[in-house]
């Protein structure tokens, strides 16, 4: 599978996760969000950027409970809770936000 962005073809797996992490840029995140009928706000970007940094550090897309805990540690309890994160990413903060961030699907999610 693939998606078209600014005339460029970007390869994805059958669930829409980028095949190559290196292909990612912010426009791709915006297009993927539009496909899910979401407009990315600064709150979304905060989580997306957090995920990219997390991946860079640990080479893994975190499971949702790990993400929630880690966000809480870094951005405070107002943001480190499932309600806040699910409001931002209704299809699941780990699964959907990882997809926007160009990361693989979190290990442990089917």
């Amino acid at each position: 599978m693939s998606i078209e962005i600014n005339g460029q073809t970007i390869e994805t797996d059958e669930e829409g996760y980028l095949t190559n992490l290196g292909d990612w840029n912010e426009d791709i995140a915006k297009v993927l969000a539009e496909q899910d009928e979401l407009e990315l706000t600064s709150n979304h970007w905060e989580v997306i950027n957090f995920l990219r940094e997390y991946y860079d550090e640990y080479q893994i897309a975190p499971a949702v409970r790990v993400l929630t805990k880690a966000i809480g540690k870094k951005l405070g309890p107002d943001k480190g809770n499932s309600k806040y994160l699910y409001d931002l990413f209704p299809y699941g903060p780990a699964k959907q936000a990882c997809r926007f961030a160009g990361l693989p699907k979190p290990t442990g999610c089917v």
Partner: peptide
């Protein structure tokens, strides 16, 4: 993939 950094994430799991 170099997965050695992932061992440092285990604590969070």
């Amino acid at each position: 993939k170099n997965f050695s950094p992932t061992y440092r994430a285990l604590e969070m799991y």
